[in-house]
Nucleic acid binder design. Sequence first.
DNA 1: GCCGTTTTCGGCCCGACTGTTTTCAGTCG
Length: 575
Amino acid sequence: MSDLSNGAIADALDELGDLYELDGAVVHRVLAYRNAAKAVRDAPLSVAQLTRDGAVTTLPGIGATLAQKITDLLDSGDIPAAIKLRERYPEGLLAITALPGLGPKRARRLFDELGIDSPAALRAAADAQRIRTLKGFGAKGEAAIIAALEAGGAERPRTRVVLDRALAIADVIATALAEIAPTAQIEIAGSARRRADSVKDLDIVVDHASLLDDLGGLEVIETASRTSASAARGRTHTGMTVELRAVAPEQFGNLLQHLTGSGAHNAALRERAVRAGLHISEYGVLDDATGVTHHCVSEAEVYALAGLPYIEPELRENRGEIETAASGTLPRLIELSDIRGDLHAHTTASDGRASIEEMALAARERGHEYLAITDHSATHGFGDDVSPEQLRRQIELVHEADAAIEGIRLLAGSEVNILPDGAPDYEDALLAELDWVIASVHTSFALDGDAMTERMCRAAGHPLIDAIGHPTGRLIERRPPYELDIEALIAACASTRTMLEINSNPDRRDLNEVHARAAAAAGAAILVNSDAHSTERLGAMRYGIWTARRAWLTAADVANTLPWAELAARLKRPR
DNA sequence: GCCGTTTTCGGCCCGACTGTTTTCAGTCG
């Protein structure tokens, strides 16, 4: 039987926080639950296991009370306090608090005074003009509620945009603004700058206020308006919100740091600063001792005033980076230029668009020393499968191309399917002829967690499988990971010297940053691969690198920063 | 509810915006 996942525990804590908030608890108590939920969600270890070991209070923000609540959850499947509060506050009330402008306080008044317990009841009351009779709610508020309900705010969370689409638009906007004001400083901020999997909107910081009036004229912008003397907001034709903020050059670092976030990072940074008598805001750093507000041209100055070294945007998620920075032990994060080769790429032999030669030349152009050709295997289907006979021919073709093309080592590989029983879909004798084998799940996603975990651990134990590709199968914003005990897989890979991939396809980025950090901590070797299906997509590698950086990885944690000869020597079957 | 190179108690980031307000609470990022 598998334990509750960190995500499930975090969801339970978030729900309890929401319920306490409806119940009128002091905000700091509610915040404590939110912080604890985040700590659990970001934890690189099994929180269930930590709890059973009596060590869960080592996580930041989890004390004796929350440890007991997590223990109750693991023992009985629920938290007693949550059961009690759910009886008092109907589920529909939480849906109401999801509407813009309606928080817990106002939702409670609607519930207490008008008996409104669902979005439908809210709509009926608004239509009957009963809401405006409440103190604090006017006709305007009533109209805003109707508008929010009609926008569907209570049913579906707003969709987020996957990072590559967001960056593509951000680059177009930044380039267009730079053409208008060539001397302006223009920076993308927000979660896009932190290289998160997806973003809600785009934040852009400029030091030329005149640019605020140019936003609406850009080709990618559908509508735009000034929202204040220093800000403009636009909407792209794709429906994404763009916030443009202008600031004086001497305060550029303050605003960029503020808008890059994350919110949790900034809150933790500011709490630390307060203990030193400093107040950090988007406008400057106020020193209590002198009464002086320091302006910062660069972010590095903001951190320096707080007594810290510069912290890379990818680390700013309040996952321990502030404490680690304070102790002077931040890792030197991996960079794209550290990568020496790519061990996952497709050609026209399966579902790729380019030939072996085209992929080889494009990889060489990118500075790679080696490239593994890993087309799909015998059972792939969709007409993309490579029969054993075709694979034998492909091996010859790859070796011929390797001999013919100077400056890059080509490896004859395959991306084999992991069958539901954990076996690869080629005979071992054929696998043994390959230079490189990466194994992935492409079928039977719906196995239960135990079966999927056994399937993948068995694959990791296969002597001829070198690496596991896109280990959780998730597609960002589209498909959740399949049921899998990722820690068990990581342990299996570490003990069998099977490498784990960070797949760089921007829709995958799989392993994600939390799992990649856990894998490196467990001693498993990580790969960052493009999974390119065309020459251009070899460039997707940067997304995997960003995930690796968000996982705190250094070049030493990633195997394909090594020359091929050194990497090959570390494989379970040295070649 | 958590936490401590000012604290085991008394704090807990900062500011903008909104609407309904004669001075502010609630919400949001």
